Amino acid sequence: MTNRPKNRNICLKGIILLFVASLSSACDKQTVYHSFQSLPSEGWMRKDTLYFNVNVSDSLTYYKLSMEVRNRNNYPYQNLSLSVCYDSPDSVSLPADTIQLALADTEGIWKGDGWGGLYQTAVPAGSIRIDKSGTYRFKIAYVLPDETLQGLNDIGIKLEK
Results as ranks from 00 to 15, higher is better:
residue 2 T to C: 13
residue 3 N to M: 14
residue 6 K to P: 00
residue 8 R to L: 15
residue 10 I to R: 09
residue 11 C to N: 11
residue 11 C to V: 09
residue 11 C to Q: 13
residue 12 L to N: 06
residue 14 G to F: 11
residue 15 I to D: 08
residue 16 I to V: 11
residue 17 L to K: 02
residue 19 F to Y: 09
residue 19 F to T: 13
residue 19 F to N: 10
residue 20 V to I: 15
residue 21 A to P: 00
residue 22 S to V: 12
residue 22 S to E: 15
residue 23 L to D: 11
residue 26 A to W: 01
residue 26 A to T: 03
residue 33 Y to K: 15
residue 34 H to P: 03
residue 36 F to E: 08
residue 38 S to L: 13
residue 38 S to T: 13
residue 40 P to W: 14
residue 41 S to C: 12
residue 42 E to L: 03
residue 42 E to M: 05
residue 43 G to A: 04
residue 43 G to I: 06
residue 43 G to W: 06
residue 44 W to N: 01
residue 49 T to Y: 15
residue 51 Y to L: 00
residue 54 V to E: 03
residue 54 V to N: 02
residue 54 V to S: 01
residue 54 V to P: 00
residue 56 V to Y: 02
residue 57 S to P: 05
residue 59 S to D: 05
residue 59 S to K: 07
residue 61 T to F: 12
residue 61 T to G: 12
residue 61 T to N: 13
residue 63 Y to S: 05
residue 65 L to I: 06
residue 65 L to K: 06
residue 67 M to I: 14
residue 69 V to D: 11
residue 71 N to T: 08
residue 71 N to I: 11
residue 72 R to P: 02
residue 72 R to A: 10
residue 73 N to S: 14
residue 73 N to F: 14
residue 73 N to G: 11
residue 75 Y to K: 15
residue 76 P to E: 01
residue 76 P to G: 01
residue 82 L to P: 00
residue 82 L to R: 09
residue 84 V to H: 11
residue 86 Y to L: 15
residue 93 S to C: 13
residue 94 L to E: 05
residue 94 L to K: 07
residue 95 P to V: 06
residue 95 P to D: 03
residue 95 P to C: 02
residue 95 P to Q: 04
residue 98 T to C: 12
residue 98 T to V: 15
residue 101 L to K: 01
residue 101 L to S: 04
residue 101 L to W: 08
residue 101 L to V: 11
residue 102 A to C: 12
residue 104 A to I: 02
residue 105 D to A: 10
residue 109 I to W: 15
residue 112 G to H: 07
residue 115 W to H: 07
residue 115 W to N: 06
residue 115 W to A: 06
residue 116 G to M: 08
residue 116 G to A: 10
residue 117 G to Y: 12
residue 119 Y to I: 03
residue 119 Y to V: 03
residue 121 T to I: 13
residue 126 G to H: 01
residue 127 S to H: 10
residue 127 S to R: 10
residue 128 I to M: 15
residue 128 I to H: 14
residue 129 R to Y: 10
residue 130 I to N: 00
residue 131 D to T: 10
residue 131 D to P: 06
residue 134 G to C: 01
residue 136 Y to K: 08
residue 136 Y to R: 07
residue 136 Y to C: 11
residue 137 R to F: 13
residue 137 R to W: 14
residue 139 K to Q: 14
residue 140 I to T: 08
residue 141 A to I: 04
residue 141 A to M: 05
residue 141 A to G: 07
residue 145 P to V: 04
residue 147 E to M: 05
residue 149 L to C: 01
residue 149 L to P: 00
residue 152 L to G: 03
residue 154 D to V: 05
residue 155 I to Y: 03
residue 156 G to D: 14
residue 157 I to K: 01
residue 159 L to C: 01
residue 160 E to I: 14
residue 160 E to A: 15
